[in-house]
Design a protein around this nucleic acid. Structure first.
Length: 430
RNA sequence: GACCCUGUCGUCUAGCCUGGUCUAGGACAAGAGCUUUUCAAGCUCUCGACACGGGUUCAAAUCCCGUCAGGGUCACCA
């Protein structure tokens, strides 16, 4: 049975690279009907924090990767010590005393060739003569990363190690431990790294790095996962949009790319829009609620749910990030709308008293306040005035929303209602 | 510097294993236009790549060698 693991260190939030590693591990386990193990590598007592553990677990769940088992390295120190003693007895390791009298256990590296069969890259050869003796147990009694990692992977029956490219050079060192301890050697697969737009490592300087940052910005987990997937794997047939479920069926670890990929926010935005426009408005409303409350746009206890859903549907097709809604639809929630100065200069500098006045009085004569009725009012008016639609539509839009862009004008007026429409238009009557 | 990985449009990729169907396909971005209501949605079109140099072959993006470029790792961090 296939068993893979994702082994984050809780010294920070789950970042994009970690999320991607978790994704491929999870995907592989699902496609092989195996198990996905989560192991928190918290051997560094100084830097490991409980809040980061919580954040990582939360982000993994948000992305949709549920684990079958969960372990903490900090609870397994006696295991590492026992194996170090075993190597000591076998004469494969030695003790080194530091000046202050504390002892570390060091593994003796013998010169030889080490071959690694990588599922993605094929065979890689290393020369252990270039590797110096490896610390197993530090003088503070804690195990080193490579040592704890090998023992855990062996004891947890991990069959495949799928991790980032940056671990390739750790592999020969770990291989030495596997052999010294007599553990079966698992399969290895090294994923290419994700780079920032500047070509270097993805860093805070080149953009957000934490998965949670993307959640806060209004990206849907499905979109982010889809994007991460596309970064080093293609479902075939020129497909771009693919669900996790479908990916599980099509995935083969051998098809993963070997080249480092650049993280491109523009494409993520496009993908997010693809998911957003097909999303359930109810779910989007739930997501948006805290933000709208925080902005003072609505009150959590007393808001019109149906009305909010209507507004969301209005903007849904054009949102790149869910949170854009709060900015783009602000004029539905505030009394004093902010009018873009350039737009005002361009569309509202002339005297539109007559046109606005006529339009308002026609709207007042409307029996219902339907989108169709509003549009008919407008079409009839421009026909009678002998002007083109656009000469009036743009000024109306700016006067009502403060912006030159937005949803269709008639739907917009419908949701704004007669009173607010009237008030905002008559403001411009001279 | 040493070792390792990688090199197809600006970006993500298909094609490479099993050479010919590739005057290299798709997507994002960009540019142009359409949508006589905007665009941040939709539709259409355009721009744009096999890193370079040698081989092998009737034929190379595909196989081999070299060069160059980019990245990663060289901790008692993980």
């Amino acid at each position: 049975m296939v068993r893979v693991r994702f082994a984050p260190s809780p010294t920070g939030n789950l970042h994009i690279g970690g999320g991607r590693t978790a994704l491929f591990n999870w995907l592989f386990s699902q496609s092989q009907k195996g198990k996905f193990v989560l192991r928190i590598e918290d051997t560094d007592k100084e830097r490991s924090k409980k809040e980061f553990v919580d954040e990582i677990l939360f982000s993994l769940k948000w992305l949709g990767f549920n684990w079958d088992e969960l372990y903490y390295q900090s609870e397994r120190f006696d295991r590492y010590r026992a194996y170090a003693d075993k190597l000591l007895k076998a004469g494969l390791a030695y003790i080194e005393k530091s000046p202050d009298g504390r002892e570390a256990v060091i593994f003796k590296v013998e010169p030889r060739k080490i071959r690694v069969d990588d599922l993605i890259r094929g065979q890689i050869e290393f020369d252990s003569a270039l590797i110096k003796d490896q610390v197993l147990i530090k003088s503070d009694g804690t195990p080193t990363y490579n040592f704890a990692c090998v023992i855990d992977d062996a004891e947890m029956d991990i069959t495949h190690i799928i991790r980032g490219d940056d671990h390739i050079s750790n592999t020969p060192k770990q291989m030495l431990f596997y052999e010294a301890l007599g553990f079966p050697i698992p399969g290895f697969a090294h994923l290419p790294l994700i780079m920032g737009m500047d070509g270097g490592r993805l860093s805070k300087r080149t953009g957000a790095t934490a998965i949670s940052d993307y959640r806060k910005m209004g990206y849907l987990p499905q979109a982010l996962v889809n994007y991460l997937l596309l970064l080093s794997w293609a479902p075939g047939e020129n497909r771009e949009i693919i669900s996790l479920g479908e990916a599980v069926k099509l995935f083969d670890i051998k098809d993963v790319n070997r080249t480092a990929a650049t993280f491109d926010l523009k494409k993520l935005d496009w993908l997010n829009n693809q998911y957003l426009k097909n999303a359930d408005p109810e779910a989007l409303a739930d997501e948006l609620l805290p933000l709208l409350v925080q902005k003072g746009y609505i009150r959590e206890d007393g808001y019109d749910r149906a009305y909010l859903l209507g507004l969301i549907k209005l903007f849904q097709p054009r949102l790149s990030r869910l949170n854009d809604f709060a900015e783009w639809a602000d004029f539905f929630f505030v009394e004093e709308i902010h009018i873009d100065p350039a737009a005002q200069e361009k569309f509202l500098s002339g005297d539109l008293s007559r046109e606005f006045g006529l339009f308002v009085s026609r709207l007042e004569g409307l029996s219902g306040f339907s989108v169709e009725g509003i549009e008919k009012c407008f079409r009839d008016l421009v026909a009678e005035l002998g002007i083109t639609s656009k000469t009036l539509i743009h000024p109306l839009r700016v006067a009502l929303t403060g912006k030159t862009i937005g949803p269709g004008l008639f739907e917009l007026i419908h949701y704004l209602g007669l009173e607010r429409t009237k008030r905002r238009l008559l403001k411009w009557a001279k």
